[in-house]
Simulated assay, not measured.
Amino acid sequence: MTAPGLFVSFEGIDGSGKSTQARHLAESLRARGREVVLTREPGGSPGAEEIRALVLQGAPDRWSAETELLLFTAARRDHLERTIRPALASGQTVICDRFADSTRMYQGLRREDLRGTVDALHRLMIGLEPDLTFLIDMDPQAALTRAKARATAEERFEDFGLGLQQRLRAGFLALAREFPQRVVVIDGARAPEVVAAEIRASLDARHPA
């Protein structure tokens, strides 16, 4: 039988560098001979990519937090069925740029009473947590400046401003304390290659090939 694969997620506030680090880790593992699926949320499957355009573009008040929660969960379910579970079942390593922790933060924090709903819907419709999550931690002002400099069409959450990014950072750090066996906090303010080396060493220590 094929051994089950490894599921690694990257989390952090907008502009923290998590996407870059997810890509670096995928390249490093492939160089070692691992089969790797590098994916993202929202997205990662054709249907989920369509939902991505809905939730990441437009005015900040386009959707309520409740509607966002349903849209993100629908995208995640399609991603899970079509990309994540098949890859894990075949023994591949899945590296995902954001997963359920982002929904716990972005929607759970926008309406503080929604965290329980987020978790309940996750248990009902998703039922999977990463084996390991790297939280790339960064100063919110520096991260937001970096995120806005990208000047893409997907800036809806950045447009909520610095206050949300500060709350998100505090929320992500609290989440790391809530799930210490799964979430590893990485200082993202250093040179990308230094950050990447620490991530590889941390992965090797917890899940040696």
Results as ranks from 00 to 15, higher is better:
T145P: 03
A142Y: 12
T67F: 00
S102P: 07
V94D: 01
R23I: 05
R110D: 10
I136T: 03
E68K: 13
R98G: 05
R82W: 03
R111Q: 14
R123Q: 15
L54H: 05
L114W: 01
M105R: 08
R40I: 13
K148T: 12
M138T: 13
T145I: 06
E129K: 08
T67G: 06
R98W: 09
G33R: 03
S90L: 13
Y106G: 00
R34K: 15
Y106A: 08
T39F: 04
M105Y: 01
T67Y: 06
A149Q: 11
A26R: 04
A142K: 15
E49V: 12
T93Q: 06
A59F: 07
G43H: 01
Q21T: 07
F99L: 13
E66H: 10
M125S: 15
L70A: 04
S102D: 10
R34W: 15
T133S: 09
A142Q: 14
R98F: 06
C96K: 00
A26C: 13
K148W: 07
P130R: 02
I136D: 02
R76N: 11
V36K: 01
L144H: 04
T39I: 10
R85I: 14
T83C: 15
C96I: 06
S28R: 14
T83W: 11
A22R: 01
L124C: 08
Q21R: 08
K148E: 11
R30A: 14
P42Q: 09
T83Y: 04
E129G: 06
T117R: 07
L29E: 05
P60Q: 06
G43L: 09
G127Y: 10
L88F: 09
L88S: 01
M138A: 13
V37C: 09
D119P: 02
A149T: 13
L114G: 06
G116H: 10
A75K: 02
R110E: 11
F99D: 01
K148I: 07
T20V: 14
L38C: 11
D78I: 08
T83Q: 10
A48R: 02
L132F: 10
M125T: 10
T117V: 14
L144C: 10
T67W: 04
G91Q: 07
L56P: 03
A48C: 13
P86S: 11
E41G: 07
G108E: 00
L56N: 10
V36T: 03
I126S: 12
L29G: 02
A147T: 08
A22F: 05
A22N: 05
I95C: 05
L114M: 15
L69W: 01
F134R: 02
R104I: 05
M138K: 13
A31M: 08
D137T: 06
Q92G: 15
E49F: 04
D78T: 12
E27M: 10
L69K: 00
I136R: 05
G43W: 00
A26Y: 01
L29K: 08
L38Y: 03
A143S: 14
V36H: 01
A22I: 02
D97K: 14
V118S: 00
A149L: 09
I95Q: 00
P130L: 14
D137R: 05
L144W: 05
I84P: 00
P140D: 11
G127E: 12
R85K: 13
F72G: 00
H24S: 07
L88Q: 03
A89G: 09
S45Y: 05
R115M: 09
H79V: 13
R110K: 12
A120S: 11
